[in-house]
């Protein structure tokens, strides 16, 4: 079986020019491959670089060295070396991401936020909205919230909007940064089911799951980022 996402010799170091060029090494020499249908859980202490690794895999952080490659429309694309419009195209079609915190365009309604990834794939507005509504129902977000921008929602409500937005387009590679962090038990269970459904359709999932129970329920393999940590 071919992997869908690979990192080879991937390193990340932040250089803080405002602090006299101080180098903050995060990790070095990471090698990983993620295959269809599996869920790789990133583990390590807080501050070990799990989120930074996930952001590198998304192209949100640049790679200090090494490479991130993704299987995009039956071809390998070097995400760490791709032009901006190629990265955006890969994200649209192939690479979904649920961030830890919802970052959205202000003043846009929840329904439109969730529908947006489908709109970007060319799905008609009505159809995209009705699918968005189904995702919000699935995630138990009350209908009276759908037409409001999520800025004033609770943490758990925002996180569910975020999850719906991240999963609706059904990309074959999914990156999940603490998707259940602020959810109650019922909603955690829904997210576990959604991750299982994604794996069943053949998606390759990489995630950070703080909750041991959730991690054991969804992960097929663990990847300890701590081992690749560079000493300060």
């Amino acid at each position: 079986m071919t992997a869908l996402l690979e990192a080879s010799n991937l390193s990340k170091t932040f250089t803080l020019h405002g602090r006299g060029g101080l180098d903050l090494p995060v990790f070095a020499g990471i090698e990983l491959s993620v295959y269809p249908g599996e869920c790789l859980a990133l583990t390590g202490h807080s501050g070990s670089g799990k989120s930074s690794l996930l952001r590198c895999l998304y192209g949100n952080y640049g790679a200090s060295s090494g490479e991130v490659r993704i299987r995009h429309q039956d071809q390998w694309v070097s995400l760490s070396g791709a032009a901006p419009r190629e990265v955006l195209e890969v994200r649209r079609q192939t690479l979904g991401y649920v961030s830890q915190f919802l970052r959205v365009i202000p003043r846009v309604s929840t329904l439109d936020i969730v529908a947006e990834p489908l709109r970007r794939l060319g799905v008609a507005a009505d159809l995209a909205r009705s699918q968005a509504a189904q995702w919000l129902v699935r995630l138990n977000l009350h209908e009276r919230l759908w037409h409001l921008p999520p800025a004033t929602f609770s943490g758990g409500e925002q996180q569910r909007v975020n999850i719906a937005h991240g999963l609706i387009a059904g990309q074959p590679v999914l990156l999940l940064d603490e998707p259940t962090a602020s959810l109650d038990a019922d909603n955690r269970r829904v997210v576990v089911e959604l991750i299982h459904a994604a794996r069943e359709r053949g998606a390759a999932v990489v995630g950070i799951f703080h909750d041991d129970e959730v991690r054991e329920a969804v992960a097929s393999r663990c990847f300890d980022v701590e081992q690749y940590r560079k000493p300060l």
């Binding site: 949100n60 640049g62 901006p84």
Partner: peptide
């Protein structure tokens, strides 16, 4: 990429 330049 905008989010890369602003976040990293």
């Amino acid at each position: 990429l905008t989010d890369r330049v602003l976040d990293d």
